[in-house]
Write a protein that binds this DNA or RNA. Structure first.
Lengths: 337, 337
DNA sequence: CTGTTAGCGCTTTCAA
DNA sequence: TTGAAAGCGCTAACAG
């Protein structure tokens, strides 16, 4: 039983303990775990059995010191609570665990200085890092990558391994969908100024609306949150747009709320499209949105990183994950003027 | 620049390097970081400056081996993507970072065996663990706590340090609120069968509805998700209840969706109350819900754990964080029969 | 105030 | 097939 204050009373058994109990050398015990092929099978048996009864678990930390392999990777995200990330984090953790790696999690609070601090701090104790939506500039990124393998998510730096949730196809489909519904004037409510994902969306939207001969007015959710989205509504209404594409689902919900406060009905008077598809399906009303493969991004990033760590990888890795529109309840025919 | 495959080319500087460059002993360098008061200020200066230019960061792993202090804690949750946890995780990470600790994150997938595996695996490389909403039985918990300090979140095991997000007050307020609106028949849509939080809610609701002389019918969201909530709607409607209290906000949204599909208006025909307040404010329509201090729970759990780790703590810790009702748009007067 | 010497738990040559 | 010994990067007595 634990002591009342929760401090431990039992020691974690070590290799030395097993060795002493068995009257063999520590090397033998060590080999039973790492190179059992070098030992007489019955010796391996004996050691493993004793380890079992003692509840021995190899101390990764000590092992790390001698092998240089920590069995740990770092995952740094700008904001854990931003709904885009939890599925990604979970997938990364699960995938790392499958390959017997642990995940050290860091939240940079969207702050480059803090991000850099965390990377520097984590670097000595991890075998590699995955940086999601990094806010660092290319030079800083390259500098960090000099010390440990780094895989980027949603940051497109040539020469560095990266996996991207590509919203392009999704926005093309969204705009085609809106065009079909008779919309002629679009609003885009943008996200974080520096973010790759925001650039990408802007480019994609600009291209697609031209194809369909639509008007586009661009706004900025400042900050890129529910409240930021809500605050843009007045300007959107003034612009005469009949459909709004939001940076992400959170901003979209803010827009939805703002619209309702102004007595504007969705989708009768205004259509709204989100992006990410992270909780669109689990809130009401169901949001028409662009589904990004965020969990997969986490999974792939970890795979690539562990390949790198194990020296299995090759060449310039650039994984682009496509997206698609999911039509739910917030888009409808353009209102008659 | 990093090599094209992302593998590192630069070494992580060590104490020895600094010592050599400066012509001092390794201890001196070490002390500049751990016990600067033992050194001549100018020596500290010199070392720190050199460390700065070399980009040296103390290697926690190596330090851990000699001190037994890893500078790492583990945080294990049943499901990272369940919106209750991200704010908690973020708060825990930020708070740990403030005390210069890293957080190893684990997702147990609501599975006791997996949870146990992760704990065992993490134990040798952490100074302590925070287990959120653990699904392990008391005996297993106590066993793990024998090896390392453990702090529980939303699990009430006497003798173990624990912090609880207490929904009691919130549900009292919610029921009083509904009573005032003229509701007489309540439905509770329960969550995960074994969970402490579900027990607690059931007890609180049962007590409060008696005080107000209300009828209560209990349902079960199976599983405790959006779809599970949605699936209970038919039965709820059949029961004649006019207000539903949901296990959490996710289930509440499922109920909302199911209600809409059945043409039931909220709040005109049916009132809905969620619990957690994790995304209620960032989705539309704003959900009346019970605000649980989940971020604080993470923060406090980490504080308590680090106190324990540092040997600063005392006695039987049981932090209960109260809750309160937040009235938004999904509750209204009981419909006339 | 600073250097010397062990040693944390493990892996890994090198010998036997 | 196994043991002895060195060392990973750091901290912590103990000297000086």
């Amino acid at each position: 039983m634990a002591s009342p204050d929760g401090s431990p009373t039992a020691a974690v058994p070590t290799i030395s303990v097993i060795a002493k109990e068995l009257g063999v050398s520590r090397s033998t015990v060590s080999r039973a775990f790492t190179r059992p092929d070098l030992l007489k099978p019955e010796t391996v048996e004996k050691v493993l059995a004793k380890a079992q009864t003692l509840g021995y678990v190899p101390n990764k930390v000590a092992r790390a010191l001698s092998t240089g392999q920590n069995g740990v990777i770092a995952l740094i995200v700008p904001d854990i609570a931003n709904p885009f990330f939890p599925p990604l984090i979970r997938a990364a953790q699960v995938d790392a665990d499958r390959q017997d790696f642990c995940v050290l999690l860091g939240d940079s609070a969207e702050n480059p200085a803090q991000e850099s601090r965390l990377i520097t701090r984590f670097t000595p104790q991890v075998d590699g890092l995955v940086l999601a939506a990094s806010r660092l500039d290319d030079a800083a990124l390259a500098e960090h990558a000099r010390r440990r393998p780094v895989v980027l998510i949603n940051r497109d730096v040539p020469g560095m391994p990266r996996v991207l949730t590509d919203s392009h196809t999704g926005f093309m489909q969204a705009i085609a969908h809106l065009a079909e519904l008779g919309h002629e004037h679009l609003a885009y409510v943008g996200g974080p100024p520096g973010a790759w994902s925001d650039h990408q969306r802007r480019r994609g939207i600009a291209a697609a609306r031209t194809d369909h001969g639509m008007t586009l007015t661009t706004f900025q959710a400042e900050p890129a949150t529910y409240d930021g989205g809500k605050a843009t509504v007045e300007a959107i209404l003034a612009s005469g747009a009949t459909a709004v594409l939001a940076y992400d689902d959170v901003v979209a919900h803010g827009v939805l709320a703002g619209l309702t406060e102004h007595g504007v009905r969705v989708p009768e008077d205004m259509s709204v499209v989100g992006c990410d598809d992270v909780f669109a399906a689990t809130t009401y009303p169901p949001l028409t949105t662009i589904s990004l493969r965020c969990a997969e991004a986490g999974e792939i990033a970890v795979s690539v990183l562990l390949d790198l760590v194990a020296g299995r990888s090759v060449g310039d890795v650039r994984h682009s994950l496509d997206s698609h529109l999911i039509v739910r309840a917030t888009t409808g025919p353009a209102p008659r003027a």
